[in-house]
């Protein structure tokens, strides 16, 4: 594993996230930054089988961004992966832009589903995993959910179904950054004991640091090799706003753009981080 290369991708993607949200003057930096290493691992860690030149390749693995408000991390990762040019990213959230506030699968290649309304991505992933298995394809389905999103009842309907249908071609990843719009998840609507909840729903559970490539990449690679007839959830412990000091663990940056000046500080921090 070339850790340096992955860190380079992560730095580029963080830069793009700040750039596009600053340019849009709105968007969701916190939950985009917390998921950077997860998406980098999927797309550049040799985990996902995909071809940017053939986005509808039938044998591809599927990645569903259930926490659709983290669209900037998806857009910048797909751009970094070569699905489309980076030059359009600064049109985020503007009229006539394919870079909608939340992902629109009809407007860009590489986006597997239109998401944004929370709680629905795991159901879509269950359906897709069922379909791929029915077709006899070996493709794996990954779904990234926010932790606050787990407060939606539909997630647990899907969790039950994934177990019932014995979906070992499905892996859910929880971006456990502990924050939601109104505050800490444990204060707004407690999720703990989270791992126990998933275990009691019949899932295998793995917990790891969501910013450590040495933990994420092997876990995702192993996730694809299962045939234990059980779905797997990876609870990735992350920091909301990761990489930008004044955004880290700050609830306000869930859905607020940085100012131009703040963006400059953010870029310099990302650069420093790279030099360390």
């Amino acid at each position: 594993m070339d850790d340096l290369l992955l860190r380079e991708h992560a730095k580029n993607i963080r830069h793009l996230i700040i750039e596009m949200i600053t340019s849009a003057k709105s968007g969701h930096p916190g939950g985009s930054l917390s998921a950077v290493e997860i998406l980098v691992s999927l797309y550049f860690g040799g985990v996902l089988n995909y071809d940017p030149k053939n986005p509808s390749l039938e044998s591809r693995d599927r990645f569903f961004l259930s926490k659709g408000h983290a669209a900037p991390v998806l857009y910048s990762t797909l751009a970094e992966a070569g699905y489309f040019d980076k030059s359009g990213l600064d049109t985020l959230r503007q009229l006539n832009s394919p870079f909608q506030g939340h992902p629109d699968m009809k407007k860009l290649p590489g986006i597997e589903a239109s998401t944004g309304s929370l709680g629905q991505g795991l159901s879509i992933s269950v359906g897709c995993a069922l379909g791929l298995r029915l077709k006899g394809l070996k493709s794996h389905v990954f779904a990234l959910l926010g932790d606050g999103e787990l407060e939606e009842g539909q997630v647990w309907e899907a969790a039950m179904a994934a177990r019932q249908f014995k979906l070992d071609n499905l892996t859910a990843i929880i971006d456990r950054n502990n924050l939601q719009i109104d505050g800490f998840t444990e204060e707004v609507m407690s999720l703990e004991p989270l791992a126990d909840k998933w275990r009691s729903f019949g899932w295998s559970v793995l917990e790891l640091s969501g910013h450590d490539f040495d933990q994420i990449v092997p876990a995702l690679l192993n996730a694809k090799k299962r045939d234990d007839k059980k779905p797997l959830v990876i609870i990735a412990h992350t920091i909301k706003g990761k990489g930008v000091s004044f955004m880290e663990n700050i609830c306000d940056f869930h859905g607020k753009a940085p100012s131009e000046d703040q963006a400059k500080i953010a870029y310099s921090e990302l650069k420093e981080c790279d030099e360390q």
């Binding site: 589903a113 159901s123 879509i124 269950v126 359906g127 379909g131 029915l134 539909q154 309907e157 179904a161």
Partner: peptide, 28 residues
């Protein structure tokens, strides 16, 4: 039976699963 999915009393999940099956190329 292999092409039929009873999702239990969970209509919202049923629609999401149907969406996923359509994305995998089926007509749910």
């Amino acid at each position: 039976p292999e092409r039929f999915f009873d999702v239990g009393i969970a209509e919202q999940n049923m629609i999401g699963i149907a969406a996923g099956l359509s994305l995998a190329g089926f007509v749910p």
